[in-house]
């Protein structure tokens, strides 16, 4: 079978223990559910001497509503199945419950955690292959052992795709990420956590571990939705991924839009927050103009690349269709 590289495993009981272990072992990596890192290690994309496991850190498994802070706090170690099935998440953040519930496959959702999914390594057809395979294309690329890009010829910046289903949704819901590292704890908007370098696409500092995602409780009526396309309905990564959120003046699809947020994944290394949606504000959500404005802006601003399967031109065209349909579906659902 495809072998893992050799490593040691440390399994601290506390977040502090995790941080200390990461400091002790240069090059150590964190493992939670294992569904992303272990295939990557089997592909020898990294050979860390030590894996620091979060399996025993029970403090990361909480999911609670903090009314004082106006937040839902989801521990990084909560599994995607738990999020998809949690009554509070389903009631307050249905787009997140939906996205978490259609990641990969049921067995993977039983293992994979929200913290792991937020930190899912970027993906590319030229990267997520065995070491042997990468040798057969001439020795890898910017993100593996080579120094070229096979997606953007002469490109010097890795464009591997941010492929998490949950990240666009969380950003659309104004989520914050909580990190703990040697210098302590910090909270930053998830929207600011990513940057456009597929090799290291998050701002996590060495030795930092994600401990929590915070979702501000809805302040007023709104509609939110996640829409994606993958070739199969299971065991597949998204090839197209759009999160939508509309704050409304009243709890009706015919109420006017007060704020609109659209976040798109599977482009480059960074999810894209679609801008210039002002034209949609003030119109009823059910006004077809809203769907049109939002989908046109998405189409105009998002340019998929040939970093994942299926033609970029097709996926770009589909951004318009999926975004428009996402809005239409919210209206249809009432």
């Amino acid at each position: 079978m495809l072998r893992l590289p050799q490593f040691q495993v440390e399994s601290p009981d506390t977040v502090e223990g995790v941080v200390a272990a990461l400091q002790r072992h240069a090059g150590a990596r964190v493992i939670a559910g294992g569904t992303d890192i272990l295939p990557n290690l089997k592909h020898f994309l990294d050979t860390p001497p030590v894996l620091v496991s979060l399996a025993r850190v029970t403090a990361l498994r909480g999911l609670q509503r903090d009314d004082a802070a106006g937040l839902l706090r989801i521990g990084a170690g909560v599994t995607l199945t738990q999020i998809a099935e949690d009554a509070q998440v389903r009631a307050l953040f249905p787009s997140l419950a939906h996205a978490a519930g259609i990641v990969a496959s049921p067995v993977i959702r039983n293992m994979g955690t929200l913290g792991g999914n937020v930190n899912l390594d970027t993906r590319c057809r030229y990267v997520n292959q065995s070491e042997f395979w990468r040798g057969s294309i001439g020795g890898g690329c910017l993100k593996s052992e080579g120094n070229v890009c096979h997606v953007v010829p002469k490109g010097r910046n890795c464009v591997a795709a941010m492929s998490s289903d949950n990240v666009p949704v969380l950003i659309s819901l104004d989520a914050n990420i909580v990190l703990v590292g040697p210098e302590g704890r910090r909270v930053l908007p998830l929207a600011d956590y990513f940057h456009a370098d597929g090799v290291a696409h998050t701002l996590a500092r060495p030795g930092e571990v994600t401990v929590e995602l915070q979702l501000p409780l809805p302040a007023g009526p709104r509609r939110a939705r996640y829409t994606k396309w993958s070739v199969r309905r299971s065991i597949d990564f998204p090839l197209l991924s759009v999160a939508l959120r509309f704050d409304l003046a009243a709890d009706s699809p015919h109420a006017e839009v007060l704020a609109a947020k659209v976040v798109v994944g599977v482009l480059g290394a960074k999810p894209r927050v679609v801008t210039r949606l002002d034209e949609a504000l003030g119109k009823p959500l059910s006004d077809p103009a809203v769907a049109r404005i939002v989908s046109e802006a998405t189409h105009a601003q998002c340019k998929p690349l040939d970093n994942v399967p299926y033609e970029a031109a097709y996926r770009r065209e589909m951004l318009r269709v999926y975004t428009r349909r996402g809005v239409e579906a919210m209206v249809a659902e009432g």
């Binding site: 079978m1 495993v9 399994s11 493992i31 559910g33 294992g34 569904t35 272990l38 295939p39 894996l51 496991s53 399996a55 199945t81 049921p106 067995v107 993977i108 039983n110 293992m111």
Partner: peptide, 15 residues
């Protein structure tokens, strides 16, 4: 009691 993939589970995680 939860179905999981044993090929992506480190043996130490079953301890």
């Amino acid at each position: 009691g939860v179905p999981q993939l044993s090929c992506l589970t480190l043996a130490v995680h079953a301890v």
